[in-house]
Design a protein around this nucleic acid. Structure first.
Lengths: 340, 340
DNA sequence: GCTCGAGCAGGAACCGGTTCCACATCGACC
DNA sequence: GGTCGATGTGGAACCGGTTCCTGCTCGAGC
């Protein structure tokens, strides 16, 4: 394989000059630069990132830790991150981790601690102190998107407000008994995403003097089958039922709609359903939802990471770092309506 | 940051011995090995992969090219690959590429051609010669999972047989007019996955002397909304309709079922639907499907890659390299039934 | 005419490992 | 007792870049 020494020799300059010519840093005469460039092209020279990393300490590679790739929100975030990194000339190393365990420890202590990545983006991960410490010890910038833990840069939507808004929408329609299909751990971890959404739900209910019965808050895995099972449990028994459901995600909402159909409950005539995400299927299911823009969120996370690494114009204004990411309520009449 | 020289000094040995002790290669006295190990632990030494790669030429990093992360099949494959690589101590660098274009060229010519990855796994990508050549030039092993192009290692299910089996199932039930919701490009690219499934469909129909009318084969994006729109087009008009549909994927099938519901067509009484994939939602939707096991497929791809890289026991028998990956027909009575 | 700094180029050190080679020791075997 | 192979160790070269430092040229300014 061609090395930079070969290019230099062919161009009749030293390695130092060839390096400067190709990287564009430092003084190089135009003529020399052109000779180096054409020499490089001629022998198909491609620089070894390893050698460069070794001396510069930069790898142009970002580690991304994400618990699922196959849930819509996470998949979209990942795609957004990937695209943004690629256009910035960065690689993305993927670590697909969910539950705590030896594997997860190994990734933080070993894989991420090596010199391989310049920084880490953690999406929807609840980090504990030791994990954050492992990164800090190696001075790796960390950007968190959703999830909890990690002190430095953090991006997220205001999940409490999201839960509140969704619930208020149902209240405005005149519903009085509203149930919540919450994500698992919502009660146990009030700071987690499901916890915050549940909190918003309770706030909105409390504001109009309602205290939901415990049976009207069901926790479930945030997937379609999870929503399906939870909704069967919530709606499947005889006797009075809630007339509206706030589902912690669109996928849960789809499952709930499917369960309602199975139970012969008409949506929205007998049951209103609202979700969260702006899932690409929401339109097809005619689901009222609070959209968030995961692809954009991923892109923003990359922006912040690059800024932390000192890339891009220093003059670039920081993106309102504190402010929550945008969301939008999208009402679709065939999933939410006034109660009978 | 601690370097191997520091470890060596602390242990009272040379760099060479420290390196041998830590890598386990070459002769090292037990006592020395223990001293080196405890010295390394004491100062929290972690080897720099860049330095090691520079001299060994191995990066312990595999590039994965995949067109979508947010479709079930691809997400599962990706998860399977990730897990298998992680346990083998490899990193995974993700390239999320679909359409041909300058970006895709850039990835093959530049990102993948550098020394950063030891090998490439391409999932569901139709590679052209120049792309394959770019990898061969750099002597990077390439394993393909689905998709077309690329001569070396290739894993896939027998998609023609899958299409045939699905269709035969419907024929056995007594259906005579069967439609096919095909993936886009099925007709134009007979070697692609959708093309092969369509081929199997036509074969099965042909074997009983039927030639489907062109209107009964609709091509669509292989997603739920795609299946929905295609099914509306197929079933939405007045007049006689097909009594069964073979959908090119489960997601398409879900969309079709949703469309049927919207049109007031009862499944399976008036319309049988069969899909392909074994999607995690298939059980909930009670969908008859031909399961394949994308997670397993990803794992197998990793196995092959590692073997090509000379990892693992040389004695390991090759996994029946030529044979197609397994599939299984799962009949669920509430999506397929005999016609009225 | 001299000084000074900008522009340009090359030699050499260096990043942090791995590996080749030379050398030393020691027990076994003839 | 001498030869041989297995075992163990260290010095030094090397992988392929980047960057520091030195030195040269040349035009501008005094």
């Amino acid at each position: 394989m061609a090395a930079i020494g070969d290019v230099a020799r062919l161009a009749g300059v030293s390695k130092a000059t060839a390096s400067r010519a190709l990287s564009g840093k430092g003084y190089v005469a135009d003529a020399a630069r052109r000779r180096v460039e054409s020499a490089a092209a001629e022998i198909g020279y491609i620089a070894s990132p390893d050698a460069a990393s070794l001396v510069t300490g930069r790898t142009k590679n970002i580690g991304v830790v994400i618990p699922f790739v196959n849930r819509w929100f996470f998949g979209e975030v990942l795609e957004g991150i990937e695209r943004a990194l690629l256009t910035a000339g960065y690689d993305l190393t993927l670590y697909n981790l969910s539950e705590r365990g030896p594997e997860r420890t190994r990734v933080f202590e070993f894989f991420l601690a090596r010199k391989r990545v310049d920084a880490v983006i953690a999406v929807g991960v609840d980090l504990d102190e030791s994990e954050v410490a492992a990164l800090e010890r190696r001075e790796k910038p960390l950007v968190c998107l959703g999830g909890t833990g990690g002190t430095s840069a953090r991006l997220s939507v205001d999940d409490r407000a999201v839960g509140q808004l969704a619930t208020e929408h149902l209240l405005h329609l005149g519903h009085t008994r509203i149930a919540h299909l919450a994500g698992s751990g919502a009660r146990a971890h009030p700071d987690s995403v499901p916890g915050r959404r549940r909190h918003g739900f309770l706030d909105a209910m409390g504001a109009v003097g309602k205290v939901p019965s415990p049976a009207d808050i069901v926790e479930t895995e945030m997937t379609m089958p999870g929503g399906y099972r939870a909704a069967l449990q919530l709606l499947g028994h005889p006797g009075p039922r809630p007339t509206a459901v706030f589902a912690a995600s669109d996928e849960v909402a789809f499952g709930a709609m499917r369960a309602a159909e199975r139970l012969g409950i008409a949506v929205p005539r007998e049951l209103s359903v609202v979700g969260v995400d702006g899932h690409e299927y929401a339109e097809m299911f005619d689901l009222t939802t609070i959209e968030q823009y995961p692809g954009e969120q991923g892109r923003s996370a990359v922006e912040v990471v690059l800024r932390l690494l000192g890339e891009g114009e220093v003059a670039d204004p920081l993106p309102d770092s504190g402010a929550p990411m945008p969301t939008r309520l999208v009402v679709r009449a065939s999933s939410t309506a006034a109660p009978r």
